[in-house]
Design a protein around this nucleic acid. Structure first.
Length: 468
RNA sequence: GUCCCCAUCGUCUAGUCAGGUCCAGGACACUGGCCUUUCACGCCGGCAACACCGGUUCGAAUCCGGUUGGGGACGCCA
């Protein structure tokens, strides 16, 4: 059985790069009928926080990237790492090093000045030193030869062992370092596939060498291309909202984000939209591209609008509710929400936008947008409003069809075009110059509210006249 | 600096492994039009790319070499 994992370090929020890595691991394991493990890499006590861990779990749950095992916390697995390190020392594969951080800095400077790669010079490698305060444990890297692997997305990659130095596997404070912990965990959890960001390519030979020193089978590797900001540099905070939770709060549907992420680096012919089932069925590491790519926020927005349009009213009403609540609506009428959702979904790109669009229907009072007020609520419409309102008030049945019929007669009598009446009415009824169709708006509002709002608009116009 | 990786429209990409069907296809964005009670949706159209130079070949976006450009890594971070 194949086993994949997503191992974030809890030093910040889950951003879209990490989310994509998690998604690809998840897709691959689902497709192969394997197992997907979540592991929190919190060996850096200084920078790891519980808040970050919580945010990561929340993000994963919101995205629906469920894990089959874990979350494991590396900070609670030190016994495993220590056993591995001690074994390496006992086997002569690792040694105690007494060089100070200052020594190391000097060595790096030295190498750099000679135009070489900065690295440890191996001072303590063959000294047979005992542990001492401040000492670390290093792995013996072969002095020559090459280490190579076949990357499932990039193809064969090889490194000269001379490029590598004896990496530290146990810090002076006794804790294991990243490379050691990752390998020890991946061995103990039975990892078969390591799917991770491009930035780990250079780490791979070191990790392979740890497997070799341990005599353990080496997993398959797949390195995903980096996600870049619009300026083509590595994604970071200054590129704006990159946290998964920020997208949730901006009103994106998890499926839309997932779809956008999947298409960043992976493709399936010309297909742009995938249900989760399709994504799982069609995903393959082979069709992951090699080149780094820029995250296209506009495409995500378009995708989000599309998924909103395609979703059921029930689902959307449920998704929309938290947004309505943050906008101050309480005791929502579920039926009302569903109704307004159904006419709003074709014109909402995000749930935030949709919640704003729902105001006219859910709020008791509306306020007129200045632009619409000035342009359409003018004395010229007063008489139309009053006449129309009398007729509307007398309607026995108040639905789109009957309203439209009444309008046809009314417009004919007054000899005006619908557009002359619709815009002023729209402002009177919704406060805005853009809204769903005017008949839809009227039906959803109901006769009582419609009549009242038209009356208020008329009064408002008269007021303006007096002021002027 | 050293090593590793990469290179098709502004962006995401198809095509590259098995060279001709590609004067390069799709999507987003932008844009012209149609529809229309506004805003959207929808529909029709437009703009726009094989980084460069050599080589192999009857023929190269596709294969090879180099150049340039970009990204990544060089931590007692992960």
């Amino acid at each position: 059985m194949i086993v994949t994992r997503f191992p974030p370090s809890p030093t910040g929020y889950l951003h879209i790069g990490g989310a994509r890595t998690a998604l690809f691991n998840w897709l691959f394991s689902k497709q192969q009928g394997g197992k997907f493990i979540l592991r929190i890499e919190d060996t850096d006590e200084q920078r790891s926080t519980d808040d970050a861990t919580a945010a990561i779990l929340e993000s994963m749950e919101w995205l629906g990237l469920s894990w089959d095992e874990g979350p494991y916390f590396q900070s609670r697995r030190y016994d495993i790492y220590n056993e591995v390190i001690d074994r390496l020392i006992a086997d002569g594969q690792a040694y105690h090093c007494h060089c100070s951080p200052e020594d190391l800095e000097r060595q790096r400077q030295n190498a750099r000045s000679k135009g070489l790669k900065p690295k440890y010079d191996g001072t303590c490698r063959d000294l047979g030193l005992d542990p001492a305060p401040g000492s670390v444990v290093r792995l013996k890297i072969p002095l020559s030869g090459i280490t190579q692997f076949i990357d499932l997305v990039k193809g064969p990659i090889r490194f000269d062992n001379e490029e590598l130095d004896d990496l530290i596997i146990r810090r002076s404070n006794g804790s294991p370092t990243y490379h050691l912990a990752v390998v020890a965990d991946d061995i103990s959890l039975g990892m078969t596939h390591v799917i991770r960001g491009d930035d780990h390519v250079n780490n791979t030979p070191r990790q392979i060498l740890i497997y070799k020193a341990l005599g353990e089978p080496i997993p398959k590797y797949a390195h995903l291309p980096m996600i870049l900001g619009p300026d083509k540099t590595r994604l970071s905070k200054r590129h704006g909202a990159m946290s998964v939770l920020a997208y949730r709060d901006m009103g994106y549907l998890p499926h839309a984000l997932l779809n956008a992420l999947a298409r960043l680096g992976w493709s399936y012919g010309d297909q742009e939209k995938f249900s989760m089932e399709e994504m799982i069925a069609k995903f393959s590491l082979e069709s992951v591209g090699k080149a780094a790519g820029v995250f296209n926020a506009e495409k995500l927005l378009d995708l989000n609008a599309w998924y909103i349009r395609e979703s059921s009213d029930e689902f959307l009403a449920e998704q929309l509710t938290p947004f309505l609540e943050t906008q101050g609506f309480t005791n929502l009428d579920a039926g009302k929400v569903r109704e307004v959702v159904s006419i709003l979904k074709v014109r909402s790109k995000t749930l935030v936008e949709m919640a704003e669009g729902a105001h006219f229907c859910l709020a008791e009072e509306i306020t007129y947008e200045k632009k619409g007020d000035d342009k359409f609520l003018k004395p010229g419409v007063l008489e139309l409003f009053e006449d129309l309102n009398n007729r509307l008030a007398a309607m026995p049945e108040f639905n789109q069809e009957s309203i439209e019929k009444l309008f046809i007669d009314f417009l004919e009598q007054k000899e005006i075009k619908l557009r002359k009446l619709a815009q002023p009415l729209r402002v009177a009824l919704t406060g805005k110059t853009a809204s769903p169709g005017i008949f839809e708006v009227m039906e959803i509002l109901g006769k009582e509210k419609v009549v009242e709002r038209i009356r208020k608009a008329a009064a408002h116009i008269k007021n303006k006249k007096q002021d002027a």
